[in-house]
Structures are given as structure tokens and as C-alpha cells.
Design a binder for these strands. Sequence first.
DNA 1: AACCCCCGCAACCGCCGCACC
DNA 2: TGGTGCGGCGGTTGCGGGGGT
Length: 451
Amino acid sequence: MGRTPGCNTDGLKKGAWTADEDQKLIAYIQEHGEGGWRTLPQKAGLQRCGKSCRLRWANYLRPDIKRGEFSTEEEQKIIQLHASLGNRWSAIARNLPKRTDNEIKNYWNTHLKKRQAEEGTALVSRKPFGPSSAPPDAIHESSECEPAQPQPTSLRPASASAQLLNKIAAKLAPSTCLETLKTSQSLQTLSTEADKEVVDVHIISNTCQSEPPPSLAVRSPDMPRPVSTSARILNKMAGRLTTHLHCLDTLKSILSGSSDNHNFMHRSPSASSLSETASDMSRSISTSNGGINDQMPTHNHLSPLIDSFDLDLLEDWNGVSDCGVSSSSLGDTYNGWESPVSPLNNNNNNNNNALTFSGCESMGTCSGEVKDAMTTETTYESEMTFGYQDASDQYAQYFTDGFSNFFIGDSHVVSACSGDSHEGKVFEEDTYSWNNGHLFENYQPLDSHIF
DNA sequence: AACCCCCGCAACCGCCGCACC
DNA sequence: TGGTGCGGCGGTTGCGGGGGT
């Protein structure tokens, strides 16, 4: 099996490895360890190039390689990780112990991709993700990765959170990050009203569960509606903002003063409203946090924040969970790992301006410049690899714009639409009634917030 | 039994990033 | 700062096996 030994340049052998060659390679590495691939062949008495030796070892001979059929759990994990990470096989492999990137890649190409494509054909129609048009091939590509979804039987209002996410998506387009978002989530087109393009974003699988979802493909009607990704994202934003109480009050005041009916979700905020909101927020934060941000920015924060949005950060953020974007709560578990106590609740934590990944979210690499979410001040620069074991790493995120598209109440839930759920609670059609004064009256606020 | 075709997968290829000088 | 070497990664190739006719 394998390629033909078609080239013997420099006397180097190519093609399938013999048992004798394998033994030589194993013996050498057992004695000298891995590395030094360039000189290894000569030292080991192999007529191979170093690259070939490394590949043979990494993909086949390594003792900690698990071969054979993929379990259902492994399949699901590959699907989920691929939705988040794309074809980053090495990154996927790092989350599948004893499986090599090559094996996963092959398995995807020969099994899962085909299956995904078949299931993807069940999607009858779909709007592009966000106002910006993605390339047609990109859309097609994403459909290959998307599981089939039952189409909504009737149009329902797009959630406010989805509108915000649309803005984020538009900002990211046509970056690879957007592609990541597209492939990581199932898109349901929910409204085609003439004067607005809205796309609600929902994940199919629940997130941060102790057990992987049974299937990404089909959700039976009697299963609870999955947690809205958009709501989760916005939850995080709200959780971030709850550290700035004045800011919350300002927002609440602004928002409540400009909304008087149940259609608040459909209204787009005026630019001036957003600007005022941002300014008020920055003032509030500046004056209420005891010098966290000594330098008060004099401009509207929103644009520069968005401009400085680190795409890699979001991409990595997508990649850190099993479904792309998610949140975790205290005690949530994923693959046996449990979220630790939130550093946000830790009085000794001085870095109040940083958001914190915890528990199941912490898996991946965040690199580049990390800035404060509200002031754009750089809090630190470096690459940090955070794994489960580094669950308390600080991690700043930027989510701005569209503030009046989500709603901040006493709880951390900032937006909900019919069927949205949070902490296992599914919102009914009208639970977000604005005029009630309590945004989510059926919602039980969290005691603490974990980012 | 012979032939054909499709598929799985090991291995190769080319590119990229990083380290070093 | 640019050049070079090396390791790593993702895409692609094509042999060999198995199933169908």
C-alpha cells in the first residue's frame, strides 16, 4: 500500500516501509529519542530521508498510537472540532489522544466529509451569514460541514443576540474566522422581512456538557431546544459588563427609555444612540472602577474596538469549545474537566478588565496582542497556550457594537428569543417582554458568573 | 474465475513558520 | 534584515484490497 517508490534520488528509498526498516527506526528512537530527523536516517542505517522517518514514526510506529475503528465518541468529537477548527488536523488530533492528524484527516475525508455532505443537502435554503456576502464556494464549503437541520416550520423573530452576532460576522467577513463561525454553527434563516436581513444562529449540540451530544445531525422534536450560541456569546459579554455596574445602569436606562413594545428586538439602534451608549459606558467604567483605567479615552470606543478585534482571538475562541462558541458555568464539565471557580469572583484577582476562560473553554492558543475590552489598552502581549490545566488564564475578548440589541437586566442573560435557553431554561415566546421591567422574569439569575 | 471499479490509507509533496546566524 | 535549515502541517497521490458484475 502507499505510494510507489518512484524516486531513488541520492540513493534514498521511497514508498512503503518494510518491517526491517521499521525495526531500525524504532530501535534508534528508543535509544536516542525523537528529533534530529535530518541525521537520523544515516545514524539508524536507513536509506530514507529524515522527513520520511519522522512521518513513519509519527503516523505509524509511535507506541502511543491507537489504531483501528473510530468510536462514536471520537467521531462526534472530530465533527465538533472540525466545525470549530476547520482542517487544522494537528489541532484536532491534540484533542483526540492516541490519534494522529493523518489518521483523522483520512477518516474525515473518507467517512465524515461524505456523510456531512449528504446530510448537508437536506438544507433547503440558507442566507449568507451576515450582511456581507461570503464567496459562493465558501458557502458551499460550509454546507459540507453542516449537519442537517429541521427547517423551522414558521418564521420567528430573529433573536437580538443573533442580530448582534450578525454584526460581528459582518465585521469579520471575509476572514477565515467567519468561515470558522459558519462551519461551526448551523444557520437557520428565520426572517426575510423586507427591511432587514437577520440570521439567527443556533448551535445544534449543547455545549460544555459532561457527555457529548448524541448526534449533531438530527434533533428529535421532543428534545430540548439547544442552547442558543448567540445567547451564550452575549451572556459572556453581559458577564463582562456586570463588573461595571454604572455601565449597566446606563445601558439599562438608555435602552428602557427608547423601547416601548415587544418589537424592540427588531429595531436597529441609531448610530447616535450607540455612540452615546459607548460614551456613557466608558465614563461609567472610568469613574466606577477605582482607577482601573486611568486614561479616559475621548472617542467612541466602538469603532476602534472593532477595528482592533483580533480575528485570531475569536477564531481560537471558537476552537476552544466543542461546538465552536460556548460558555461554561461553575461546575460545568466537559470530558471530565470541571470548570473551576471563576476568577471574576475572586477578590484577589486584580485583573478585572480581563475576561477569563475557565474549565471546558480553556483549550487552545491565544496569541498576539490582548487588549482591554473597554479601553483598548493593552493589558498584555504574549502568546499563551491555555489548556484545561490552565483554566484560570486570563483572556480578553472584544465584543462591541450593537449594545442596544441585547439587554441587560439583573440577570446575566442579555437576550433571549423564543426557544432560546440558558442554564437549561428555555425561554417561552414572550418571556422577554420589555415592558415588564424584568427582562426575563422567568429566568433565575445566576449566583455567579463564569466566563 | 476474471475483470473492473471504487475506496481506504500510507506516504509523498510543497509550503510555512520558527530558530539560528 | 535577509538567508538558510529544519520541523511541522495540510493537501494530494496512487497502490492494493475488496466488492460488484
